[in-house]
C-alpha cells in the first residue's frame, strides 16, 4: 500500500466517522427567523447542509478552473433568488429537502472524483441545486422580522462560503493537497448520504 493510498484510507475512515456523527438536527436548528443582517449572516453557518453545499460549490469551481471558478459563485446566488421567488409566491416545488440533501451528496462526489464537467453541465448542476436552496430559504424569508436585512446577511455569507471553498480548492494545485481536497469532497459526500437518508425518511 503506497503512502498516498494509506492517506486516502485514513481520510475516508475519518469522513465516515464524521458522517456517522452528523444528524438532521445538526442541519438547521433555527426557531423561526428573527431577522436582521447578523441573523441572516449567521444562518448559513448554523446549517451544515447549506454550509457544505456552498463550500462545495467554491471547491468544485476551483477544481474546474476558470471561467467556472468565478462563474459558479455568480450563478448560485442569482438562481437562488429565482428559487426564493417561487417559494415566496407559493409555487409548489416537490421534494425540496431531498434536493437540498442531494446537493451536498452530488457536489461532494464531484469533488471526490475530481470530475471536470463541461461548462454548461457544471453550471446546470449548480443552478438546479441553487433553486432548491433558494426555495427552502425563500419559504422562510417573508416571516423574518427584517427580511431585507436578513437577505443581505444571508447572500453575503453564502458568497463568502463560496470564496472559502475557492480558497481551499486553490490548494489542489499542489499534488498532495489535491488528495486532501478530494478526501474533503468524499467527507462532504458521506455527510450528504446521511442528509439524503434523513430527508427521504422524513
Amino acid at each position: 500500500m503506497t503512502a498516498a493510498s494509506r492517506q486516502w484510507t485514513k481520510c475516508t475512515v475519518l469522513a465516515l466517522a464524521i458522517s456517522l456523527h452528523s444528524s438532521s438536527a445538526a442541519a438547521h436548528t433555527g426557531t423561526g427567523l428573527p431577522g436582521g443582517v447578523v441573523q441572516g449572516f449567521a444562518h448559513p453557518f448554523g446549517g451544515l447542509d447549506h454550509l457544505l453545499a456552498m463550500v462545495s460549490v467554491g471547491l468544485w469551481g476551483a477544481f474546474l478552473g476558470r471561467p467556472l471558478m468565478y462563474a459558479l459563485p455568480v450563478v448560485f446566488p442569482v438562481v437562488m433568488v429565482v428559487g426564493a421567488a417561487l417559494a415566496m409566491f407559493g409555487v409548489p416545488l416537490p421534494r425540496v429537502e431531498i434536493g437540498v440533501a442531494l446537493s451536498v451528496l452530488v457536489l461532494g462526489l464531484c469533488i471526490a472524483t475530481a470530475w471536470r464537467a463541461p461548462i454548461v453541465a457544471a453550471a446546470l448542476i449548480v443552478a438546479v441545486f441553487a433553486l432548491f436552496h433558494g426555495y427552502a430559504h425563500g419559504r422562510e424569508l417573508p416571516s423574518a422580522a427584517d427580511p431585507i436585512g436578513y437577505s443581505v446577511g444571508f447572500v453575503f455569507a453564502t458568497g463568502l462560503l463560496h470564496v472559502l471553498g475557492i480558497g481551499i480548492g486553490a490548494l489542489a494545485d499542489r499534488p498532495r493537497a489535491a488528495m486532501f481536497v478530494r478526501a474533503l469532497g468524499a467527507s462532504i459526500a458521506c455527510v450528504g448520504v446521511v442528509f439524503v437518508r434523513s430527508a427521504v425518511s422524513a
Binding site: S24, G32, A84, R139
Partner: peptide, 27 residues
Amino acid sequence: SWLIAVALLATLLQMLPVTPGYLPDHL
C-alpha cells in the same frame, strides 16, 4: 452579483401581497 441577488429579493418582497407570517425553519 450578490448585490443584484439582494436587490431582486427585496423587490420581490415588496411585491408580495401578504406576509405569510411565522413559518418554521426549513428543517
